[in-house]
Design a protein around this nucleic acid. Structure first.
Lengths: 245, 245
DNA sequence: TAGCTACTGTACGCATTCGGACAGTCGGGC
DNA sequence: GCCCGACTGTCCGAATGCGTACAGTAGCTA
């Protein structure tokens, strides 16, 4: 069995993978591989953010925590991005929460090292800037989507967004959890998920969802999926997804 | 009548006002005062953004344009900010639209000049970074808000956000227009605006709205107003608003 | 001051989603 | 192989908001 080096693993994250070799090598000593349990909170609202994380696989939800104790997902981060943008923006805390949803392997870099690694003239700086633009576009579209589109459209969109960040066609997710992410009732998710399953677009059982017809899902989802996807493709190149179509 | 210099006017925009004098003076030759008609589009979805704008007064809506031809407001920019963040993020276009809503006086800086003015080590760069963080927080909270809160809460919040960016307690806005911004029916706005008026929080007639009880509005609005406001206060200092409480 | 237009008020039936409850079923652990 | 807990399916009444329509009114313009 081959020994997997930090260099190999860094190639899993699309931002790190896009760095020129010398710059990546300067980063390597500051990258530490970490594995977290599912639902692990990477940073909580108002708490200091001490490090950024470059996911190797799976995805992290960015959540806005509400007064009633609930949380609404406003964006999703996978191997195309980095968790901890507030540090880049010059602050060590944020009103949002970052929580692991799937996967759970990332490369961790301390706030201090990240600041140096994104100094003027570095490729990392311009990549993170572009990623920040993508993420903002995702959140913006989510804002519009939450106000205008049906649960069915939003669920189809959510599955596609997650699927883009997953190596496999199946991933663990329950209706209960989806309902929290979408900000709707669990029963509402069950009903529309049942419709999507009946239409042959997905399959699921006991907390495991399988995508069986991507094209069909795209047809059922609102335009928000395509708008954001095109923005990611445009700014990060078309290779940022974990899977091929 | 005193001659108002570009320097004086730059003090109206909180980002420019926060620059050290020498840095501001280097910017001045690149700042041009522009006046636009209401509803003027500063940048349309997918079209090249050729300049940034530092508003002196009033506010601009950032909109996500939807497939049905409608548009949903995802954020609001006033004298505390700058329109054209995509340029800062390294791209000259965006899926969003920026449109004047009130006021309409800004200082314009070309993309080229903006790039130089935000070079490494400048105060402008760090100010714009912090502002970008604020704006992202605003959009995130809007995403959550759109999914969870009632029209009444959202309208109260919207009025507060606009009020923060307006010198006067009254500003021109019709129910029709508010309904487009909030993504709801015009009739829905009329009903809840009527309730807020009956409660003595606002007054309006024929396209002119007046805030008569800010504290009452804050009590009626969802927590989203406070969450975002605190983030702006924290990162930009408490003086970013056009008015006192 | 008459008329026009833009804006506001209100009503009706309908669709979606909610909040809550409860029954059915899957599948891992013992 | 059985049990139990987690997950899914379904139902109810109620609330919210939608789409549409039309009437009333304020205020500008001629």
């Amino acid at each position: 069995m081959a020994v997997e080096t930090t260099l190999d693993r860094a190639r899993s994250n699309r931002i790190l993978a896009a760095l020129p070799r010398p710059e990546l090598e300067r980063c390597l000593p500051h990258l530490e591989r970490v594995v977290y349990p599912i639902r692990q909170v990477l940073h909580a609202p108002g708490e200091p953010i001490t490090a950024v994380h470059f996911p190797e696989s799976g995805w992290i939800s960015m959540l806005a925590v509400l007064a009633d104790g609930g949380a609404a997902e406003v964006g999703l981060i996978g191997r195309e991005g980095v968790v901890g943008l507030p540090l880049f923006f010059g602050t060590d805390r944020s009103p949002a929460e970052a929580m692991w949803q799937s996967g759970s392997v990332a490369l961790r870099m301390s706030a201090e090292a990240f600041r140096e690694a994104t100094a003027e003239g570095t490729t990392l700086r311009s990549l993170v800037l572009r990623y920040a633009m993508c993420f903002t576009a995702q959140v913006s579209q989510t804002a519009a989507c939450n106000g205008r589109h049906s649960i069915e459209q939003r669920l189809a969109r959510w599955v596609l967004v997650a699927h883009d960040r997953d190596e496999a066609d199946e991933f663990p997710i329950t209706h209960e959890f989806l309902s929290m992410m979408l900000g709707v009732r669990r029963a509402g998710v069950t009903v529309v998920a049942g419709r999507l399953q009946k239409a042959g677009l997905i399959r699921y059982r006991k907390g495991l969802m399988t995508v069986t017809d991507r094209a069909g899902l795209e047809a059922h989802a609102c335009e928000c999926y395509g708008v954001v996807r095109r923005e990611y493709d445009r700014l990060l190149g078309p290779g940022w997804r974990a899977r091929r179509d």
